[in-house]
């Protein structure tokens, strides 16, 4: 997978680059508008992470340009502004997703994967990992040959776990993923615990491998290796 990171902050560039290269992706960096414009013009990317507050130009103009030259490229806006109007503007111009800073890396990862899936597989969008198969179109989870019933929260958790498999995931990242802005108000770790517990129980009940391991005091890992 080829990702372009358009971001002026070097530390953020490094962080994203490091993270996604671990996942065997090709990551390229553009630090300003002109540089980004040039790269978009010359190469094709699966996904572009775009910070709209850029030196030498408006990131919103880049969205228009990307949409006309390579419409299949997914665009995720990463913005420090977190303003509602900005978000609406960006989505109207054709961006696929909007992620306000500061974000959790697994969150960004999950969103990129969801975006790539949507853009590349059309209708038949399957996630499969060993005995687990998920039809995201129908939101159906099958373990081996058995379909299991998951609540929305459990389903979202599973997708998130698989996207970030073999990584230590903090509870706060999970909470933010499940409840978004509303997670702000609560410090209720029990809630995430009970959702994870139920998901694990449902999977184990159909003889699925016990992938979900808790990391004491920190969170969980979805271990496949």
């Amino acid at each position: 997978m080829k990702i372009l990171v358009v971001e002026d902050e070097i530390e953020v560039q490094n962080m994203i680059q490091h993270y996604f290269e671990l996942e065997k992706n090709i990551v390229e960096i553009a630090s300003d508008f002109d540089n980004a414009f040039e790269k978009i013009h010359m190469y094709e990317y699966d996904c572009i992470l775009l910070d709209i507050t850029l030196p030498k130009g408006d990131g919103l103009d880049l969205i228009k340009y990307i949409k006309t030259t390579s419409p299949k490229t997914g665009i995720i806006i990463v913005s420090a502004k977190n303003s509602f109007d900005d978000k609406i503007d960006a989505l109207n111009l054709g961006a696929d997703d909007y992620l306000p800073k500061p974000f959790y890396m697994p969150e960004l990862n999950a969103r990129i994967k969801a975006l790539i899936r949507r853009n590349h597989f059309g209708g038949i969008d399957l996630i499969s990992l060993n005995e687990i198969t998920i039809n995201t179109e129908e939101r159906r989870v099958t373990i081996g040959d058995t379909t299991i019933n998951l609540t929305t929260k459990e389903y979202n958790l599973l997708i998130y776990f698989i996207a970030n498999k073999n990584r230590v995931l903090q509870k706060n990242a999970l909470i933010e993923h499940l409840w978004g802005d509303n997670a702000d108000q609560f410090d209720n770790y029990d809630l995430i615990y009970s959702h994870v517990k139920n998901l694990r129980k449902k999977m184990l009940a159909v003889n699925c491998t016990d992938y979900i391991q808790s990391v004491y005091g920190i969170g969980y890992t979805f271990k496949t290796e």
Partner: peptide, 8 residues
Amino acid sequence: QTPLAIIK
């Protein structure tokens, strides 16, 4: 937000 994103 940017430094916070870096910390996270």
